[in-house]
């Protein structure tokens, strides 16, 4: 069936099987490989994208469920004038190692900061508790999200 998804601001119309997962749609039809697959069971959050601004796990959602809606992936975070403050903060605070969880972590961070511009450490830890990182121990991810919040508040 034919669906139209607004992917990072651009309308993408494709024929898909009804069973096509959203993550596969993004990676193959959308040709955006920054969204990763880590567990297939909604547990790890590597596939997190924003659906109309809300974080969803695209490995357990069908592409047809996103028909007519807006999806933001890591490739859509960057701003016209450069990196999103979250991207800059993840690098500055060493919030990533292998980088596989990073897109999902940043998108959850973006949604959190949208609602709560100055989260406490516990706020951040709770917000990212649906996303697994195997490398960093989360300390610097938390630091990076809070630093980005502070940066966004002043700029």
């Amino acid at each position: 069936m034919q669906i139209t998804v607004t992917l990072n601001g651009s309308d993408q119309t494709h024929d898909v099987e009804p069973r096509t997962l959203l993550v596969d749609f993004i990676r193959t039809k959308g040709e955006l490989t920054g969204t990763h697959i880590g567990c297939d069971t909604t547990s790890c959050g590597a596939c997190t994208v924003l659906l109309d601004g809300t974080p969803v796990k695209s490995c357990t959602m069908l592409a047809v469920q996103a028909d007519g809606r807006a999806v933001t992936t890591v490739e859509g975070l960057k701003r016209a004038d450069g990196l999103h403050p979250l991207q800059a903060a993840f690098k500055q605070e060493h919030g990533l190692q292998c980088g596989f969880c990073t897109p999902g972590m940043m998108l959850v961070g973006a949604a959190l900061l949208e609602q709560n511009p100055a989260p406490t450490e516990d706020d951040v830890r709770w917000a990212i508790s649906g996303n697994i990182c195997r490398c960093t121990g989360y300390m610097n991810i938390v630091k990076a999200i809070r630093a980005a919040g502070a940066e966004m508040a002043t700029s």
Partner: peptide, 16 residues
């Protein structure tokens, strides 16, 4: 880290 520049914008190139 130098490698971060590609990972933070979704341009890492993993196997899949």
């Amino acid at each position: 880290r130098h490698e971060d520049d590609r990972f933070i914008v979704g341009q890492g190139r993993y196997l899949d």
